[in-house]
Design a protein around this nucleic acid. Structure first.
Lengths: 234, 234
DNA sequence: TCAAAAGTGTTAAATGTACACCCATGG
DNA sequence: CCATGGGTGTACATTTAACACTTTTGA
């Protein structure tokens, strides 16, 4: 096609901000870069998009290759297209945002063994663009968590209300009144109380809950799990 | 760079959903495609990204070339990367969303004279991907209009409260109680009442308002200009 | 003087938030 | 029996939305 032949072509990559959650709070997966520029530096996990796949497929593939997990929650974040982002070759980067339950993470899936979790409170220096992408991702997780049942992606199947509550506090970096947030969470009806208790935290024990498959289907939005003033707009 | 040389490259285009507003409601600018595939079909205005520009610059350039306007409100919408979107050549498309005051539109800026406004209620058939992009844009305008002072971009500098109110109704396709929305709009303090009146609509005449340069700087969010139930999340 | 649109206030309901006490249990 | 975290309810403040009458003025 003559019209197309006049046009330039670009490298096209995906960068994934993969979050997990543990006692340190939120973590993000970084890996050592295996190629220039910034070879050996830590960076978000990513890869080039191939001819025969969409960016979404490429991102899924990246995540699968680093974690060994197949069906990871993932959404498109933002496209970064500035020139001179990387010094050697101009590359279009499409950022994705993803969440996993860290208990399902399989380190050995990462053949090169270059990937490592870092607490988001204590990150190494990244290339400026990745720092920016991370900022977008931290906004996005707060934005969604306030409105949608998203944070469950970070927890095991069974969890206590306190675990969930604490997760909200870590994500928002704010303390929430236990009585209010617990009640709101329970009122959603997307939680099913299990007969078992987690006895680790107290003598009395706290009941485990899981997501209700049935209710989650019809469920659309939280009525303000977190106080309105902490809601973001995007 | 040997690593890069193994990677595929892609065409990279921007597609812009440019909205304007008049008595017909919201309009979108479409143009006849000058190249295959779908040559002569109507499509969103767009263009390829050049080597020496970011996607944002490319989109600004597209909008400027079709409208003659320089500083157009614009934001990134979503990247569409599916294979087989277009039949001949695989192209990555980054969609942008933009708003103008139709009174500033200069038809003659469009050298090929291929661009035309269409009421969004009455659009011709577009390629499926552009239909999808438009859906994203219609969501986005509602999402933002509910929270941010965005719709002013569609109006002339001076406007009446009724014009603004009607615009909200067209965007959301809902009737809003005049007493509530007018009061909320005025309470924001981002509106300045002008001494002049628009006498076209009534004997009494309705005061013109304009945006307050001063207040708009500090302004962040509407407290629910439109009822909460009409808010979207993205 | 009247028709037609502009302008404005009140109230009831729902929602959000602050707050404190009892419960169950294992040691 | 008591220390520890688990579990729950109430009341007040704020926000939201429904609703209707008065004003202005040109013809």
């Amino acid at each position: 096609m003559s019209f197309y032949s006049e046009q330039k072509k670009f490298f096209f990559a995906v960068d994934c901000v993969l979050f997990s959650y543990d006692d340190n709070g939120l973590n993000v997966l970084l890996s050592k870069r295996l190629y220039e520029p910034f070879k050996q530096n830590l960076s978000l996990v990513g890869g080039f998009v191939n001819e025969n796949e969409s960016a979404e497929e490429a991102a899924k593939q990246v995540l699968q290759s680093f974690t060994g997990i197949d069906n990871i929650y993932m959404e498109q974040l933002y496209a970064f297209t500035d020139i001179g982002r990387e010094t050697t070759q101009r590359t279009i980067s499409l950022a994705y945002f993803a969440l996993i339950n860290i208990q399902e993470f399989k380190q050995q899936a990462d053949k090169e063994n270059t990937a490592q979790w870092f607490a988001i409170e204590n990150l190494p220096e990244l290339i400026p663009e990745h720092t920016k992408i991370l900022e977008f991702a931290k906004e996005r997780i707060k934005y969604r968590a306030a409105k949608q049942p998203l944070l469950f992606e970070l927890l095991p199947e069974k969890f206590t209300i306190l675990q969930l509550h604490t997760l909200y506090e870590k994500v928002f970096d704010i303390q929430f009144d236990r009585r209010n947030i617990d009640r709101k969470l329970k009122q959603t009806n997307i939680l099913v109380k299990l007969p078992e208790k987690d006895k680790a935290g107290s003598r009395r024990g706290a009941f485990y809950y899981k997501l209700s498959e049935k209710e989650i289907k019809n469920f659309t939005e939280f009525g303000n799990i977190v106080p309105l003033k902490y809601h973001l707009s995007m």
